[in-house]
Design a protein around this nucleic acid. Sequence first.
DNA 1: AATGAATGAGACTTCATTCAT
DNA 2: GATGAATGAAGTCTCATTCAT
Lengths: 242, 242, 242, 242
Amino acid sequence: MPRQQTVQKSSTAYHAHRERQRRRILDAAGRLFDERGIDRVTMADITAASGVQASTTYQYFSNKEEVVWTILREVMQERSECAQQLVKSTANAEARIRSLFEFFADELVNEPLKVRFVAQFDAMYARDWPAERLIALESQIFPESFGWFAGLIREGIADGSLRFDLDPELTMHAVINAVVGTQRRLASLGKKVELEYGHPVDRLFRETLRVLLLGMRAPEKPRRRPPRKQPPAKGRKRKLTS
Amino acid sequence: MPRQQTVQKSSTAYHAHRERQRRRILDAAGRLFDERGIDRVTMADITAASGVQASTTYQYFSNKEEVVWTILREVMQERSECAQQLVKSTANAEARIRSLFEFFADELVNEPLKVRFVAQFDAMYARDWPAERLIALESQIFPESFGWFAGLIREGIADGSLRFDLDPELTMHAVINAVVGTQRRLASLGKKVELEYGHPVDRLFRETLRVLLLGMRAPEKPRRRPPRKQPPAKGRKRKLTS
Amino acid sequence: MPRQQTVQKSSTAYHAHRERQRRRILDAAGRLFDERGIDRVTMADITAASGVQASTTYQYFSNKEEVVWTILREVMQERSECAQQLVKSTANAEARIRSLFEFFADELVNEPLKVRFVAQFDAMYARDWPAERLIALESQIFPESFGWFAGLIREGIADGSLRFDLDPELTMHAVINAVVGTQRRLASLGKKVELEYGHPVDRLFRETLRVLLLGMRAPEKPRRRPPRKQPPAKGRKRKLTS
Amino acid sequence: MPRQQTVQKSSTAYHAHRERQRRRILDAAGRLFDERGIDRVTMADITAASGVQASTTYQYFSNKEEVVWTILREVMQERSECAQQLVKSTANAEARIRSLFEFFADELVNEPLKVRFVAQFDAMYARDWPAERLIALESQIFPESFGWFAGLIREGIADGSLRFDLDPELTMHAVINAVVGTQRRLASLGKKVELEYGHPVDRLFRETLRVLLLGMRAPEKPRRRPPRKQPPAKGRKRKLTS
DNA sequence: AATGAATGAGACTTCATTCAT
DNA sequence: GATGAATGAAGTCTCATTCAT
């Protein structure tokens, strides 16, 4: 049936075109948001950067808000996929937690602008939109709504690697918020922190993660204090050790 | 010399007047920033709320930015004083750290709007202004630029209450950033977090602090696992325990 | 000749299709104009309501104006037919005039939205378009350009039912404009008038018509004032009485 | 008290200036509304015509709506004053009614643009704003909310100059709406009507008014029909005669 | 010093209409 | 002929800031 095929073809072509345009807009907007911050970007900037006319943009997104929101969703989704892949690859409970932490650290190193974008979003826009919408979106990262992480803690308690006196639900939220909060703060203040501390931010972040891990881990038999002080390694980007 | 005295008098009166005006402006602005968020407040709003004319405001502050900045400085200063008083009152190193943490927790409970204000500031404005200015300002909290906190850690290592393998400088920054980052995140997302977790944010925050403390503490002799599971206390607003 | 027939057939089908599309557009537009007012309706609204694409609409009407104009013509035509039927059914001159008036009253009751539409058209668009076009269109109502109505007046003068001192042409226009003007005003302000007067608009309108009729009627022998005051009937929707 | 005086002076000066600016804006807007119609005038047009910057205009009127509304109020007020003066100057009930009618006729002749403006307002804006607001405004014309006109009718009935079977309230509203509706229609369609009829609109309008008056007047002793037809005088702007 | 007025530079958004397929 | 995409020209309104008194 040539006619149908033609229709389908052209419809597909149309669709492809639309998708391309959408991408152009989103890419331009995303880049600008990262560079200047959400509030420093106007619709006119976006259209100028995307090569699409301002009025055309409104055929794809009804609002500036919607553009922001869409980008946020995409960022979250991408992260979600990365995180899940990364975490699945290890077996042991503590190792998984560590690899989740690792994920946040990598993100800070590799996508500091994206993290800062999300941080700004939380600080500026979260208040305006219904919490439900945000939760729904954030829960995409771990489809089981973090329950999975609580499960890991439960596992760790069971196998003796984590402190037995943790409340899995509570600890989960406490730790996740600490990790995310720290990550975003460091991303937001990036240069400032480096200037203050004199070292790359991820160094700092990994130390935070190490302390959190230690805080959850079951107490070990106290090692005798080593005779000579052994300063912690200072290599950059090394894996989290404890 | 009566004349001089008069001048002095009136100059004093003049100064007092100026100070009063400044306060009116700052108080109004501070309240509005807390309520609506920095970017949702216009100069017109501030002048309406303060009763001082917009043009007059520019005789006290050259910018909207400067108003924001001034309020930030005041907030920091106030916190600084509180923090230092609180911390001085205890002697032992670990206790001091704990009381510093306690300070942040109280702040989250008592002044969530102020914390949110600072959070928004970091997310939105920090990028625009030279890092040096921010550092200079934040360092007011602890005049010794947190060196004091590093000192506490060193003390703790020395007296065996903290892990011997901590790098005081590094850990200090790592932990402080974690505490501050978590606190601000929780303040920013307040309702949202409560909705997600079902408990007041400070409960969450105190658990974060507990884990961080545990993570820094020197490993104890492992306690034998108690025969009956002993769920962690669920009391609200209880002090940090470990 | 099969070919011709086919062509004719398909051409007929084609015509039918075009007519259907046109109708869809006009119906949708007409409904929207009635509901929201001409100026509150965009082409996008019309296409959304009609199911016909915006660009397609331009193959049927070259303008938004043309859509408006076409609808106006249809409304006029429809009224014209009704009016003529109604009027033909009576014989006596005064009765015919009365039945013409009746027609306007019914229209106000049954099609207030259409009347309001025409009223808005007059107020907004009449000024932009050449008067000739409007006259040409309005004269459709009475193909003889109201001459017919003037004829009625002449008749009435002749048979003594109307005042002998009327100038048929002048009175015709004066009365028609009064009737139409009042009707449209009442349709435009509908609720407002009811609120102000506390009675349905048609009550008011029928009283206007009664006074106009009385004004044209030849003076009767003065009736003696009745002994007891006889309040006028208050029934709703009663016929015009004098 | 020189200081007080100074303050008062400058405050007066300020006030005077503000009033002047307001006037400039309103005058410009009024002129444009009259010329082009309300919807054809943009804020930019107004500011261009008034010589005041667009943003300045918003310090005097928060809306385009408010400008329109203000002008409407002024037009109404002005009319109100004229009408009341005019009417007070006569004593007899019928004469007063006639002089009220005369007022509307003069208005149509002298201020056709203003009348058209009000007509457009009714047709376009009346639907958007609460009827109460409109009523409140219209009732300014006759502070007693037309009750005064009803009183005239009552008087006329009593002294035998008007038909005894009129319902004062009902007739009042019916007649006023007819007069106003006709006046506005003629103002809106001005040229068109003249083109159709070949005579100035006020001729038409005065005839309408005459018929209405006749319709309200108590039936006289029928005059014998004069032997020769006596066409009504055709002079322009003659007073209403019956 | 205080203030009312003024303002310019944009921000977001809408909409009738045209084009290319 | 139908359609989806594109668009340019406006339109309303906001706001930090400056000026003149």
